[in-house]
Amino acid sequence: MSGPIKRSVMIAGHATSVSLEPVFWDALAEAAKAEDQPISALVARIDAQRIEHKDPANLASAIRVWLFERARAVR
């Protein structure tokens, strides 16, 4: 298992750096493909949901949780 990889993602016209482990980048790419949208659009949607919370988690954590919940719902 390797450590986090930092990538730049566009959200609302701004580049944002996100650090995720390769398994999460792969899962995010699969989810974006399944929803027929770019990774940046999916991350923007996750970010919009994240900031609605009273005490939002950081973006990388929000992505991990979203992916976990998605995987659990598929079962």
Rank of each mutant, 00 (worst) to 15 (best):
I51W: 08
L42V: 00
A41V: 05
I63G: 01
D55F: 02
A62R: 04
E52W: 06
R75W: 13
I46W: 13
W66D: 14
E52C: 10
R50K: 11
R45F: 09
R75A: 09
V65E: 07
R72P: 06
L67D: 06
V65Q: 12
A57L: 11
L42H: 01
A41F: 04
H53E: 12
A71C: 07
I51E: 13
H53S: 01
R64Y: 00
S61W: 05
V74H: 08
R70K: 12
I51S: 06
L67R: 06
N58F: 06
L42S: 01
V74K: 14
S61M: 10
R72K: 03
L59R: 03
L59Q: 11
N58Y: 13
E69L: 15
L42G: 03
R70G: 12
R45A: 11
F68L: 15
Q49M: 12
A48F: 01
A73I: 05
A71Q: 08
D47P: 04
H53L: 07
A62Y: 09
V74N: 10
K54V: 08
R72L: 15
A62C: 04
I46R: 05
A57C: 11
R64P: 01
A73V: 10
F68S: 09
I51T: 14
E69W: 10
P56Q: 08
R75N: 10
F68E: 13
E69G: 07
A57E: 14
R50I: 06
R70I: 15
V74C: 03
R75T: 10
A41Y: 00
A62K: 02
Q49D: 15
I63E: 01
L59V: 11
D47G: 07
R64W: 02
D55V: 07
I51H: 11
A60N: 11
L42Q: 02
Q49W: 12
A44F: 01
L67H: 05
K54A: 10
R64D: 02
A60H: 04
I46T: 07
V43Y: 05
R70H: 10
I63P: 00
D55G: 10
R70A: 14
I51G: 05
A60Y: 04
W66S: 15
V43K: 02
V65G: 06
D55P: 09
F68Q: 13
L59K: 07
A71H: 09
R50S: 12
A41S: 11
K54Q: 15
R72A: 12
A48Y: 12
E52F: 07
A71E: 15
I63L: 06
A41L: 00
